[in-house]
Amino acid sequence: MKLAEDKSREVFHDHTIQVGSTGNLGISIGIISVVFGYRTVVHMSADAKEWKKELLRGHGVIVVEYEGDYAEAVRKGREQSKLDSRSYFVDDENSRSLFMGYATAALGIQEQLQEAKIQVDREHPLFVYLPCGIGGAPGGITFGLKQIFGDQVHCFFVEPKQAPCMLSGLLTGLHSQISVQDLGLTGKTQADGLAVGRASGFVGKTMEHFISGVLTVDDEKLCPAIQMCYETEGIFMEPSAGSAIWGPVRLFSEEEGREYLKKIGCSMEGSTHMIWATGGRLVPNGVRKQLLN
């Protein structure tokens, strides 16, 4: 692979990749950028877990920490990147390219459903529950799924009760112009990847046409969810991903959910429900035990 050869790495070494993150985006961008030889800087908020910072530093990534939240890390990272003509900032808040990159995940889902012989049509609707922070990943995935399955896929975002930034933006129509702190919420949550006070305005405006709904989850329900999944399926996930487990529970058990199902008028007997459970494989064993206990 040409890009991984020494000649390419020598060129990349004179350039910098930067990103603002509470964790998983920083891990993915950080590690792959170092592999290609870039000088790599990840700007992380106070909500980011210590083991994620240590993992990045172990790969040679420069980690810059901030006392503020995700918004501050992104803002400062963007400002620092602009000062260097050879620096590129991976902007989860406003990047159309990153958004479309997330959307390609839908092609993988389509392939896996076909391999499993799972139909998606009016008699066999697909319901997808996605953890939501600033909105880039769940928004892009939803956009991609809608291009493939149209009205036969129903996508719900799941957010922590103290950090429902996408819900706040959608309900008010203010999108990035309102923060959860404006509503008296803390923006703090054990689901560090979802600890975002202000949603992406670009994603929020786009999702007005595609999203089926947004659900919120109490923090104390996150660890029981990941414990249940680990004990029954042998799959470990982070608290952020565990939030999505409550998606179908809320949809079927609460009045608003039942009203939605009645409105769309499709059969639940043949429906498929998918939890978008990214995150978990890199969590150190000691941290896993703490969360499961």
Rank of each mutant, 00 (worst) to 15 (best):
D6R: 06
D6Y: 00
K7F: 04
K7P: 09
S8M: 06
F12T: 00
H15W: 13
H15S: 02
G23H: 07
L25H: 04
G26V: 01
I27Y: 06
G30W: 01
V34M: 12
Y38F: 15
R39W: 08
H43M: 07
K53D: 03
G58E: 09
G60H: 08
I62N: 13
Y66I: 08
Y66L: 10
E67C: 10
E67G: 15
G68L: 09
V74M: 08
S97A: 11
F99L: 12
L107S: 07
E111Y: 07
Q112G: 04
Q112Y: 00
Q114P: 00
R122D: 15
H124Q: 08
H124V: 03
L126H: 02
Y129H: 04
G139D: 13
F149T: 03
G150A: 06
G150T: 01
Q152I: 00
C155V: 08
E159S: 05
P160N: 08
L167T: 07
G169R: 06
H175F: 13
G184S: 09
G184V: 06
G197V: 03
A199S: 11
K205A: 04
Q227L: 09
E231Q: 14
E231L: 07
G234R: 04
I235R: 03
F236I: 12
E238F: 07
S240N: 09
G242N: 04
V249A: 13
R250T: 13
F252P: 12
F252T: 15
S253Y: 11
E254P: 01
R258M: 11
K263D: 12
S267H: 09
S267Q: 12
W276K: 01
T278E: 01
G280I: 02
L282K: 10
V287I: 15
K289L: 04
N293S: 13
